[in-house]
């Protein structure tokens, strides 16, 4: 399927879900009834003990077609699909609660399997029971020696969300300028910043910055806490860096609140922001190279 055709298909498929989410104004809940990936200590912790020998059977049944016999992301389907399947031999994962460069938790991996990866061929494996996913994970871990040598990182703390206010959104907008998010994601969040073209991931595959105006789900979740986690941990193996050295605690919520205004859904952030803009739009300098010092 061409890129365009695939896009149309996926947009059509997503349409219903997006309309439902937008209409309800829901955006802090987990996607499609999944348990929300909570904040701080209320994160669900995987309890099941994986059995690699059982996991291998399940892997061969469900995963091998794309991720390959050797877990290197080279299965029989791989040549036809883009983005390419994850290469488990590197043990580098986009969606983590843990700092950049560290292994994800089992819960992170389970969430990814259940959630799927939007705009990729990785479907949502929602019906798989916890034990089966734990078994598969324990087998996937045999593909990289890192799982024997290292422990998963300590999850980045996500504090309780601060109230959505104009001040918070404005502070987040200043961060979007200061940390130069616009260089990749574009001044309006369209994913078309000056550095956006020609980007590649760590396996030299083309990759584009997220376009906030599409109303697409993020690759790594749907909630505000997921968004907070995405820029704090970075998406390893991609150009998206970790900002946890420079954004601390509640300030991260300011950026979350601003990013939500870039999306077309009806969110509390968008409502407050539109009301404020109606009378104050002229006070804002546009985001971009000439707006330093906002």
């Amino acid at each position: 399927m061409s890129r365009v055709a695939r896009r149309i298909a996926s947009v059509a498929g997503l349409g219903v879900a997006c309309v439902a989410i937008a209409a309800a104004g829901v955006r802090a809940q987990g996607h499609n009834g999944l348990p929300p990936e909570g904040q701080g200590s209320d994160r669900k912790i995987i309890k099941n003990v994986g059995r690699p020998s059982v996991g291998k059977e399940e892997y061969i049944r469900y995963c091998v077609g794309c991720h390959g016999d050797h877990g290197d992301g080279v299965g029989e389907n791989t040549q036809w699909i883009d983005p390419k399947p994850r290469d488990f031999t590197l043990a580098v994962f986009k969606c983590r609660s843990t700092p950049s460069g560290t292994l994800p938790t089992d819960q992170d991996l389970m969430n990814t399997i259940r959630r799927g990866i939007v705009h990729s061929n990785m479907p949502e494996w929602r019906p798989l029971p916890d034990q089966m996913i734990a078994d598969i994970l324990s087998y996937i871990k045999t593909f990289s020696p890192r799982w024997k040598a290292e422990q998963p990182g300590t999850p980045v703390e996500v504090p309780a969300e601060t109230p959505v206010t104009t001040e918070s959104i404005l502070a987040g907008r200043a961060m979007f300028q200061k940390f130069e998010c616009w260089k990749c994601h574009g001044p309006e969040g369209r994913g078309n910043g000056p550095s956006a073209s020609g980007m590649t991931d760590s396996k030299d595959q083309p990759i584009t910055p997220y376009d906030f105006t599409t109303s697409d789900r993020f690759k790594c979740g749907t909630s505000n806490a997921d968004l907070y986690r995405i820029f704090m941990t970075g998406l390893d193996g991609t150009p998206m860096a970790s900002f946890s050295d420079n954004i601390k605690g509640d300030a991260g919520w300011d950026l979350v609140h601003y990013l939500r205004t870039l999306q077309p859904m009806k969110t509390p952030e968008a409502t407050i922001w539109k009301a404020w803009l109606a009378t104050h739009a002229g006070e804002l300098k546009p985001i971009g190279p000439d707006a330093t010092g906002q």
Binding site: L90, V92, P99, S100, G101, T102, R146, E150, K178, F179, E180, S202, G234, D236, G237, T238, P239, M240, A241, S242, F243, D245, N246
Partner: peptide, 15 residues
């Protein structure tokens, strides 16, 4: 963004 394969790969912003 040091693209290590043997060592853990990380990617950090530095404003």
């Amino acid at each position: 963004h040091p693209m290590s394969k043997v060592n853990p790969e990380w990617n950090k912003s530095q404003p």
